[in-house]
């Protein structure tokens, strides 16, 4: 499968496992993510997809396995290195924007935080970048000094995306980014995300239970059940011609809706 021109994958995962006592969080997960590629991870709740994501993003320590980012061993990194990485080259979009935003701080401050964390010290430039990013996520520039609490759910989610992308990360983790939004709001957000991913050449690991979301965004798909990957491949192929019984069940249940 991996016959792409790039020399090396951006993210490389081998034999990853995480246990909660004797219960399996996820086990035996291996995959490569290439620059500019969107990998969708689907499965029901409890399938291990969120555990996998939090291990990849460094929120949890896996019990076994290896994670390499751009050739660097993530699990061997010191905490300062890991945290610096997670606010420069990596980003994390939470399902609930309240988990990813500072609700008591203006939209501009939310976008500017990552810039200031890596040393930006010019107020005018930080503000300009903030305005630029508000435009890119379709929020009126006049709202720059408003707090996210005054925003609708869809706007909060778009703001969270802007706050994450402002430092031009190479890899973005997304946890159900459209969950909890109305269908029409979801469609707009997906459209926006698709544009940003394409324009910025982002690599994305996207966790969702919504097959419509992966069909629109993901190049490749991984199906998880009971902590294990049961099927993976090109998105259209997996969705149109599912091999594993569980994937067939997932796809058919969606088609019924």
């Amino acid at each position: 499968m991996n016959t792409r021109p790039e020399a090396a994958p951006l993210l490389s995962v081998r034999g990853l496992a995480k246990y909660y006592g004797t219960r399996i969080g996820c086990t035996d997960v291996s995959f490569d993510l290439w620059p500019g590629e969107v990998l969708g991870i689907v499965g029901e709740s409890g399938s291990g997809k969120s555990t996998l994501l939090s291990c990849l993003a460094g929120h949890q320590q896996p019990d076994r396995g290896e994670i390499h980012f751009d050739g660097r061993d993530l699990l061997a990194m010191s905490e300062p290195e890991r945290r610096r990485l997670s606010r420069t080259e990596q980003a994390f979009v939470h399902q609930n924007p309240r988990d990813g935003l500072r609700m008591g701080i203006s939209a501009g401050g939310n976008i500017g935080e990552r810039l200031m964390a890596v040393g930006a010290r010019n107020y005018g430039q930080i503000r300009e970048t903030g305005l630029d990013w508000l435009g890119r996520v379709e929020i009126a520039g006049a709202r720059i000094d408003d707090r996210p609490s005054a925003f609708s759910g869809g706007m909060q989610q778009r703001l969270q995306i802007a706050r994450n992308l402002v430092t031009a990360p190479r890899l973005v983790f997304m946890d159900e980014p459209t969950g909890g939004l109305d269908v029409s709001v979801q469609a707009r957000l997906l459209d926006l995300l698709r544009g940003l991913v394409r324009d910025l050449g982002l690599s994305v690991v996207l966790v969702t239970h919504d097959l419509a979301v992966v069909r629109l965004l993901a190049h490749r798909l991984m199906v998880m059940k009971s902590g294990q990957v049961v099927e993976q491949g090109v998105t259209d192929q997996v969705l149109d011609d599912p091999q594993h019984g569980y994937t067939q069940l997932l796809v058919s249940s969606v088609l019924q809706v």
Binding site: I105, G109, G112, M116, A117, Y123
Partner: peptide
């Protein structure tokens, strides 16, 4: 970063 966010605000 957070310290400067306060000054920004």
């Amino acid at each position: 970063g957070l310290m400067h966010v306060k000054l920004y605000e």
